[in-house]
Structure formats: structure tokens, C-alpha cells
Design a protein around this nucleic acid. Structure first.
Lengths: 171, 171
DNA sequence: TCCTCACCCATGATATTCCAAATTTACACA
DNA sequence: TGTGTAAATTTGGAATATCATGGGTGAGGA
């Protein structure tokens, strides 16, 4: 799982070190896919072979020749760069993707569960504070609470040990 | 899998280099099939022997003499060029296909999972931005999210390890 | 005879690999 | 808690390999 946020620098050759924890999340694979985020947020999204295998399975499930599938295949499959890390864990960011996400010298890697994002630091800061506001919204918190309860319920009653309401011993 | 997009030039002899990653996706085969895309989008569609084998199996499943089968066989089987790469990974694009897809000097190879597309660069840019708009539509993103969840679910509960929120043994 | 095609080699540009230094982080010990 | 040592990671740069592309040659067909 891709967790946390890291900053990294683009060198003169356009190379970037993938943060070590993200390399671990890639499970030892050296192939990395990168594409502009679908929602137009201005960042890049990326992942390894496992993610792309999931996306392939997802896309081939959609009706062939449907507009939805064509759009997604074009953006995710045709629109992604197929990169390979070197032994020191670096990739070369393609020019067009740098331009698309406004990446110049420093970038932010942000974990996104199964994938990660690459941000221009200023854009990331703006995005971050917008998300902080959104997350504090009671509606958002309530939605999270409902989903969490569903997962708990789905996992069965054993997820939490039965509380001992009166218990003499504490240790 | 055919991923990403590459640009290539048609030389004076009508030859085109297949991008190296696509050659890898062809699995070492040197035979390439090309035909005008069925959906009338104006590009060519292509693949190797593996794809054609799949198409053969698919087409022979359809009822013989059915209009559907005749139409598809005519377009995909009869309508495709059967080309062979040279040792440097080039093919010669047939004149009629070039005319059909409006290919002149430069072309775009776009990955399409099991097949690839060949585009006139300007047409590709137009198609691409149309698809970007379509993909950013919340409806499309939602459809993708649903399909992704289904794939996750289909892979069983093991796709994510069940979290043990409270666990007696700790170390 | 001319043209096309398949096959060959050459070359510049690009990407990849390799090596090494600098920096950071982790760990052990005082 | 602070410090020294070791390991890992991030950088920078050079050597090497790969790739896209251009052109040449001869066989075979029109």
C-alpha cells in the first residue's frame, strides 16, 4: 500500500528517485506506469504492474466499443508512460507528463492506497488544504463512519472482542 | 499488453518502425495484422498472431452465414493486411490503409491493451482531447470505480488482508 | 528494363546501465 | 540522552547498449 507523502528532486536528466517506501510497495517490480489523473486535478497518477493488471481486468470488463471504455482505455492505457526503474530506484519522467502536471525541479509523491500521485509542490499544498477542509465537513465524516461500520459488520462480530463491561482485573 | 503511445516516422520507402515496447508486447513474433478500425474512428487497428488467434476463435463462434459474422469476417479478416517485420522491427504500410487512415509522414502508435492503434497525429490529438473530456465526466469515473470494485471483490476477500483491529497477541 | 521488395549495414540520437560520491537514516553503545 | 559507526538512500556523471532511421544491394516480378 502506498502511504504517506515524500518530496523528491528532478535532476538535470529528468530523473527522479522513487521514495524507498514506495519501491517496497511496488513489491520488487521495476516497471512503473504514469498517467495524468483522470479527474483533471493536475497531478500524475502511477502504480506498478499489480495496479495495471487490476486496471486491465477492470477495463476489459466494460462493454467493448462503449464510450466509457474507449475513454478510459485512451486515458489510462494509451495515455500512460511505461517506465522502468534503474538499479538505484530512479525513473525518467517523460517531458509531456512533466508539462501536463507542471513539474519542474521538485515534486511530491503522495500515497493513494493502490496507486500514488505525483504533484507540483505548490499545487499539492493547495490540494491538501482543500482536502483538509472537505474532510472536516460533517457530511464527509458521517459518510466515512457509515462505510467503516459496514466494513466492520461485513467482517463479522469477531472484529472487536466482546467488551467486558465489569471487570475487576485490569492488567 | 500494448501500453502507452509512441510516435514514429514513415520513411521514403513507406516503412515504419514498430516501437520497441510494442515489439516486446508481440512476444517475439514478426507477423503483424492491420485493418481500419471497425468503429469508423479513422485509425488503423493492429495486433500480432496472438490477437488474430483470439479473433479467429471469436469469429468461428458466431453462427455461420449470419450477417454479423459475415460483416466482421469481411472487415477484420478480409480487410486486414498481413505484414512481416524486418530484422530492425519495421513494416511497410500498404497504400490503401495509409489512405484510409490519412497517414502521411508521421504516425502515432497508441496502446489498446490486446491491440494497438495507428493514428494520424492530428486526428489522434483530437480524439485524445475528446476522450479526456469523456473520461473526466463523473459518470465515467463512477462506472470505472464500480467496475474496479467488482474486480476487487471477485478476487475474493484476500485482495485486501482482513485487518485485525484488536489482536490479543502483540509481538 | 523498371520497379518493388526483402535483406543488409551504417549512424546519430536516445535511453539504459554502471560506477562513485554525498547525504540521510538507522542502530549500537556509552 | 548524546555520539559514533554502519547501512541505506539519494544524487551526479560517464560508459555502454539499444533504438529509430537512412541508405545500399540484389532477386524476382511486372
Amino acid at each position: 500500500m502506498f502511504v504517506s507523502t515524500y518530496e523528491s528532486a528532478i535532476d538535470a536528466k529528468g530523473r527522479v528517485s522513487i521514495p524507498a517506501p514506495f519501491r517496497a510497495a511496488l513489491g520488487g517490480g521495476t516497471r512503473i506506469f504514469l498517467w495524468p489523473a483522470l479527474d483533471g486535478s493536475g497531478c500524475l497518477e502511477g502504480g506498478g504492474e499489480a495496479l495495471m493488471a487490476m486496471y486491465r481486468a477492470t477495463l476489459t470488463r466494460l462493454a467493448p466499443q462503449s464510450e466509457v471504455r474507449k475513454a478510459l482505455v485512451t486515458r489510462i492505457i494509451a495515455g500512460s508512460a511505461d517506465l522502468k526503474m534503474d538499479e538505484t530506484g530512479r525513473i525518467k519522467l517523460p517531458e509531456d507528463l512533466c508539462k501536463a502536471a507542471d513539474l519542474t525541479d521538485r515534486i511530491k509523491f503522495a500515497g493513494n492506497i493502490d496507486s500514488f500521485q505525483i504533484w507540483n509542490p505548490e499545487k499539492h499544498a493547495a490540494f491538501n488544504s482543500a482536502m483538509a477542509t472537505a474532510a472536516a465537513d460533517p457530511e464527509t465524516l458521517a459518510a466515512f463512519g457509515r462505510a467503516y461500520s459496514e466494513v466492520l459488520h461485513q467482517q463479522g462480530a469477531g472484529a472487536y472482542p466482546a467488551p467486558k463491561l465489569v471487570d475487576g482485573s485490569e492488567g
